[in-house]
Amino acid sequence: MNCAVCIAQVTNPETPAAAFSIDLKARRAIPAKDRPLVINDYDQVAVEAALKIKEAKGGKVTIFSLGAPSVTVAIKHCLSMGADEGILLSDERFQAEDRALVAYALAMAIRKAGNVDLILCGRQEGDWDAGQVGLGIAEILNIPSVNPVRKIEVDDGRLVVERIVDDGYELITLPLPALIGVSNEIGPARYPTMKGIMTAARKSVDVWTADDIGIAPSRLDPSSAKVNMLDLFIPMRERVCEFIEGETPEEAGANLRLRLRKEKIV
């Protein structure tokens, strides 16, 4: 049972709004000084899910990511958690905001690597996405997908998964190969062990360019993107909070009640 896991390096989602800024010209966020880029939360959970499957069913776990050479650090982290191999798609011609190109490149890389039974990714990514890359990969590779999933079981060559829906969950079965978008309910990602870190240190991360995975130069031309970003801006918040005071917190609590009553809110 071989798993491929797609991960992305993103701006730290805990960055407070006050420390958040954007590069208007490049149309992307400037990472705050004390908040280095991190692996997308859900993607770490997807790695965890893959490692659990490997422990139960054997096989190997390969990490795929598209990004700058610095993403190697993120892939190495996954290797130190226990993943077997890492492949970085890095090429100056990749435009990360063209989500369809990202999905296409990852799909082509997974196809090239071959011998993958299950593709896992996070249910969504914190920067640009709302979950289209994973489903896009499934569509390009013409395999079934389920997203977002909170439990995965492998049973006799099929998957049985729990898909989260608005008022509960759906128990779904599907054949392999397949793609699953993993949600955090599956359980927290493990921390690397010292042994894991040392093993990962000896491994190298393969770097593949667009040419290596057979993407035509025409598809890399920005004009071939179907969706273009016209603008990126920080929305204005003009609201001023009215702070309710009191000699003690108790008094402030009582005053809050009086104030809300005066406004006829409660």
Partner: peptide, 26 residues
Amino acid sequence: ANIFSLAHFGVVGDYQKVLPAFFQKC
């Protein structure tokens, strides 16, 4: 706390003290 940037009304304090008083008043 960032929530105050969006709030119309705010109370700065320990909720364990603020809420019971609010509750009692209600």
